[in-house]
Every structure is written in C-alpha cells, then in structure tokens.
Simulated scan of single mutants.
Amino acid sequence: MILEIEKVKNVWHDVKDILSVPHTDRQYKKLVKILDELIDEVGNDEKHQLAPLLETIGNLIEEYENDHFIQPNSEPVEVLKFLMQENNLTQKDMNILGSQGVVSEILNGKRELNVRQIKALAGKFKVSPSVFL
C-alpha cells in the first residue's frame, strides 16, 4: 500500500486540481470544463482508459452541486432551508412568513407556504416563486 501512495505523491501536484473536491465556483467551473472535454473524448465507451476519470470528476461535480445549488423537484421547505443556510439566516430572520410559531410550523413541515409567503420569499431571495411550489 505504501508503494501506491508513493506513486500518487509523485504525480499529485500535476493532478490535484482535477481530482479534488471543488470548494470554489472557479474550481467547479474548471472541473465542468474538463468533464465536457472528457465526454467528448470518452463518449459512451465504458472501456475507454479515461472512463474511470470521467466518472470520478462527475462525482466530484455532483458533490459540489448538491451542496451549492437548489435541486430540481425539491420540496419547498427544503428549498427554504437551503436558502436560509446559504444566506446565514435563522428562523428569527424569517419574520416575513409570520410569527415565530408560523415559521416553526413551516420549517417542520406542519404548515405549507401560502401565496403571500411564496411571493415574499421569492422577493427576499431573488428567485422564481416556482422554486417554492
């Protein structure tokens, strides 16, 4: 096993940018560009020598996207929680939804968002109201 690590250490400087989880938008965009180039090269050939690299980079990109982007078809409360987290907001900051009790019920899935609340959230977070439907 130590021999394998030594091999990786010898080439890590050259490959670390494409084999590391992206932590910034810039790193993410670079990986997306590399993935596009790999897709052109590998295509649907699962036996291509670069197919495992394509899969690995795809997984790294997916990890970043899951942490930084709203997923399609997410439940409205999950979208709200995501946006609150991304903007460092707490339940107390969400008074546009109503009282603390109302906010708590929404965040715990005991109450659905109404039209007024959806419009207010869309304005606050500058997103389409459809993300809350």
Rank of each mutant, 00 (worst) to 15 (best):
E46T: 13
L3K: 04
V77C: 00
A120F: 06
H68K: 14
M84Q: 08
F125Q: 04
D17I: 00
V42I: 13
N44D: 14
R26C: 00
P72Y: 03
G58H: 09
N44I: 12
K119D: 14
N73T: 06
H13E: 13
V77Y: 02
D36I: 06
E86Q: 14
E75C: 02
E62K: 10
E112D: 12
E46H: 10
D36N: 15
V32G: 00
R116K: 15
A51K: 07
L97E: 11
N44R: 12
K33E: 15
I61K: 10
K124I: 04
D45C: 05
P22R: 05
V79E: 07
N88Y: 12
V115W: 01
G123E: 15
L19F: 14
D67L: 15
Y64R: 08
F69E: 08
N95V: 06
D93E: 07
I96E: 10
D93T: 07
Q27S: 11
Q91C: 02
P52I: 09
E4K: 08
H23A: 07
K119M: 12
L31I: 07
S20F: 06
S104L: 01
V102Q: 05
L53H: 07
E63N: 12
E6P: 03
N114W: 05
V77K: 02
I61T: 05
N44C: 00
N108L: 01
E6C: 03
G109Q: 03
S74W: 11
Q117K: 07
S99A: 04
E78I: 04
D40F: 08
Q71W: 06
K9Q: 14
Q100R: 13
V42Y: 14
Q49A: 09
